[in-house]
């Protein structure tokens, strides 16, 4: 066998192995355990007691309450499948923190069944739609189409072209 062919086989084999490694890492990282726990996992006791972890989920609509005397705020994190955990925090909440939106908070479960968070982060999704356009679409009970033509947006938002 020519040395060059040997080298080609070596490189192809290496590539196959790298591909396999990559697939395995990706698969391992799909599991939620890598980064955060859902309310369901916490309620079914899959999270060790007293450990610090990240709790991910949506902020339940109408659940946000701020204390009148202290800095403390409370809200309910839900997975929209009936699993809910109340979060207590006295930290500054990020700009994007909103009811109905995703959040990730880090802290511990207290003995009283409340989650005491040291840090609350807001997630944002991969949607980049002008606010006015979204309102129009929502009013018409339409989902935003996958690719909206630029001229329509300009017409709706009154933007100069």
């Amino acid at each position: 066998m020519k040395p060059r062919n040997k080298r080609i086989i070596f490189v192809v084999l290496a590539l196959v192995m790298v591909g396999a490694a990559s697939a395995l890492i990706s698969k391992a990282m799909k599991g939620n355990l890598a980064y955060l726990h859902t309310p369901e996992e916490v309620l079914t006791g899959k999270v060790p007691k007293g450990s610090t972890f990240r709790l991910g989920g949506l902020v339940k609509e109408g659940s946000f309450k701020r204390s009148e005397t202290e800095l403390e705020a409370r809200f309910v994190v839900t997975d929209n499948r009936g699993n809910e955990i109340t979060v207590v925090t006295n930290k500054i909440l990020p700009d994007l923190f909103k009811e109905g939106k995703s959040q990730v908070s880090r802290g511990k479960m207290g003995d009283d069944g409340l989650f005491y968070a040291d840090e609350v982060l807001a997630k944002h999704d991969s949607e980049y739609m002008p606010a006015e356009l979204k309102d129009v679409l929502d009013k018409e009970h339409m989902r935003a189409p996958a690719n909206v033509d630029g001229s329509e947006i300009k017409a709706m938002t009154g933007q100069k072209s």
């Binding site: 890492i25 799909k30 599991g31 955060l36 991910g56 929209n80 982060l121 997630k123 980049y128 909206v148």
Partner: peptide, 25 residues
């Protein structure tokens, strides 16, 4: 690794890398 469509299941802070809901401009 972090691209999952369901926000309940998404085990990341970073958003999904998707161009599907990006306005054309």
């Amino acid at each position: 690794a972090v691209n999952c469509p369901d926000p309940n299941e998404c085990a990341s802070l970073h958003q999904e890398s998707s161009l599907k809901r990006v306005e054309s401009n």
